[in-house]
C-alpha cells in the first residue's frame, strides 16, 4: 500500500489536524507515515495544506509532487493542486464551498461532498474533515473506520474527547456517501 494525499484549504478548517488523524490511524495499523505541513509565507495568507503519505514501505520524500488523492476544501486549494493529481488518482472536494460546475472542469475523477454544509447541520462545521476522511476510507480502504476513533483520542486534546462520538458520526456520514 502506498497512498500520497494532499489536504488543502483555509486555516481554521482543520486541514492539519485531519492530516494528523490520517497519519496516526496509519501508525495504529502498523504502517509508515509522513505528515508535512505548509509552513512559512503561504501559511500567513490564510491557506493551509499538508502532505500525508501512508505506506507499507520506507517512505522517501515527505513532499508530494503528484498526489494520488487531493482533498480540496476551497476553490484556491483545488486550483493549486488539481493539475498535479495522478491520472489514476481522484479528488474529494467540498462542494458546499466549491461550485459543482467548476468541479466538472477538473481532469481527475471528482467526488463532490457537501461536507461543510452537512457538518454544520450535524452541529459543527469542524466535523467536515471527518466526513472527508470517511469518504477517503470508502474509496480506498486505507484503514478501518474504528481505527480513526482511536486516532481521535490521540490527536484531540483531553477536553475535546467528549466530541469523539459526534466526530465518528461525521465519519460514518462520509462512509455513506
Amino acid at each position: 500500500m502506498n497512498y500520497e494525499i494532499i489536504l488543502a484549504g483555509f486555516g481554521g478548517q482543520g486541514i492539519l489536524s485531519a492530516g494528523r488523524i490520517i497519519s496516526v490511524s496509519a501508525i495504529l495499523e502498523g504502517r509508515n507515515t509522513t505528515w508535512f505541513p505548509s509552513y512559512g509565507p503561504e501559511m500567513r495568507g490564510g491557506t493551509a495544506n499538508c502532505h500525508v503519505i501512508v505506506s507499507d514501505d520506507e517512505i522517501g520524500s515527505p513532499i508530494i509532487n503528484n498526489p494520488d488523492i487531493l482533498i480540496a476544501m476551497t476553490l484556491p486549494a483545488l486550483e493549486k493542486f488539481e493539475k498535479v493529481v495522478r491520472n489514476t488518482g481522484f479528488i474529494i472536494a467540498d462542494s458546499s464551498l466549491i461550485e459543482e460546475e467548476r468541479l466538472k472542469e477538473a481532469k481527475s475523477r471528482v467526488f463532490p461532498i457537501k461536507a461543510t454544509q452537512i457538518a454544520g447541520e450535524m452541529g459543527h462545521k469542524a466535523y467536515a474533515m471527518l466526513i472527508m476522511i470517511g469518504k477517503l476510507i470508502k474509496e480506498t480502504n486505507i484503514f478501518k473506520p474504528e481505527t480513526v476513533e482511536k486516532a481521535l483520542y490521540e490527536v484531540l486534546k483531553q477536553e475535546l474527547h467528549k466530541l469523539v462520538p459526534e466526530e465518528m458520526a461525521a465519519l460514518s456520514a462520509g462512509l455513506e456517501m
Binding site: A26, P37, I59
Partner: peptide
Amino acid sequence: DGALGQMMEN
C-alpha cells in the same frame, strides 16, 4: 532542515 523539523513521522 526546515522540512525534517516541521514534518511528522512515525
